[in-house]
Design a protein around this nucleic acid. Structure first.
Lengths: 221, 221
DNA sequence: AAATATTTTTAGACTAATCTAAAAATTTAT
DNA sequence: ATAAATTTTTAGATTAGTCTAAAAATATTT
């Protein structure tokens, strides 16, 4: 039997491994999990004992196939529940993370599969992140951060790279939601801010940081 | 902050208190929770410390207002999730208990209220048990166990007093579901078994034990 | 009202998950 | 290639929740 906490460590390791090629360090995990490095070491020993990670002292860790399977399943559940909360219970996209964080630990294969069917097999969650299928496969999509668009290029907002409430509420204010089309008008080299038009209407300035966190799919590509 | 386990103890105490007038004993709780009496005593001290129960050594316990509120909220969440599982995810009524047992611990007021609205404010769960409203009030209903019906009296099955899979599957076999009308044809004093007709069609014999666990609402009453 | 039986509590120990502080290993800089 | 800095692990405690076995309190029986 695998505990709630062990599951959270596996998910953290998966998340960190996604963004790099090398072994995942103790410190990276302690930062992600907001715990002490000593606690992480303790947990790594336990996860290694259960053969969910490959671990050698001082060398960092990687997930085993079994560990990867569990982490992927958690991500699948988390994202399906987020879709449920937004589509069926009318939650806004900036309020669903914490609740899904609890729901993802509910243990029932049948529940996940029925929920997936009920939601009509969504491929992406409310933030545009891909939902792995029952076999653990993610759907990939041609996309890039808004700041990488050239001047006068246009695309559709398909995802966000930050999930914090303040960021998402800021996007709501700009009337920026997934599916909205955005054209990059001008880039300012001084601070890398960009001028864009939203849905062919309002033109606004957004910072480098915001542009970096908006994922765009170019039209007919 | 109240833990998962503490919540389960409160619910167990509430459940036992429902069926009797006196203080709830340590042994009754240990039986309900499937733990040792020593563990129960430990937990009672903690719950008493948090003012969720009234506790005096060797005297049994009762819930405080705050404890009652938490227990009722858990029951509300449990039963709403059961409705969701049956009505939206097509689970059968004998499979929902364990999953709801986990879901009831998800902490979010907003989630419960949105779920309630999504389900259109159901008053009863799939086993016919009343769902308390947000204020903690249960809907009462004129009902009695089937074995208390007189010969030739008729009524509608509105609830079951046992939730085990074998019992519910047995009812499925008899084509007995909530809302079905039942007429008591004959009582056999020898073993208290009864002969009934289901929905005016098949007539079958059922044991005292089964009859005891079927809750009937008499027609126009 | 004693004796007996039952229930409840205490004592002491265990595991999972956490912490701080100190030690050990590794990496980086001079 | 040594010294300094950083990272990781170990050592030793703590808390929640659990256990068994023994002691204490209460209830029941004769």
């Amino acid at each position: 039997m695998i505990s709630h906490t062990e599951e959270n460590y596996l998910k953290a390791i998966f998340k960190i491994a996604e963004k790099q090629h090398k072994a995942v360090s103790t410190n990276a995990i302690s930062k992600e999990m907001q715990t002490s490095a000593a606690s992480v070491t303790d947990m790594l020993k336990r996860l290694s004992e259960k053969e969910l990670i490959n671990y050698a002292r001082y060398k960092g860790v990687s997930l085993t196939e079994e560990g990867k399977k569990i982490a992927t399943s958690l991500i699948r559940k988390h994202r399906l529940w987020e879709v449920f909360l937004v589509e069926k219970l009318n939650f806004s996209w900036d309020k669903v993370h914490d609740i899904a964080e609890e729901l993802e630990h509910i243990k029932s294969e049948e529940l996940v599969e029925q929920l997936d069917a009920f939601l009509q097999y969504p491929k992406f969650d409310p933030h545009g992140d891909p939902i792995p299928d029952a076999a653990g496969n993610f759907t990939f999509r041609q996309q890039m951060p808004l700041n990488e668009l050239a001047e006068n290029e246009e695309g559709i907002l398909v995802g966000v790279r930050e999930h914090s409430s303040p960021f998402l509420q800021y996007l709501d204010q700009l009337k920026l939601s997934l599916g909205t089309s955005i054209r990059l008008i001008e880039k300012f080299d001084y601070d890398n801010s960009v001028k864009i038009t939203i849905a062919g209407k309002q033109s606004v300035m957004i910072s480098d940081k915001v542009a970096h966190n908006l994922l765009i799919k170019k039209e007919n590509h």
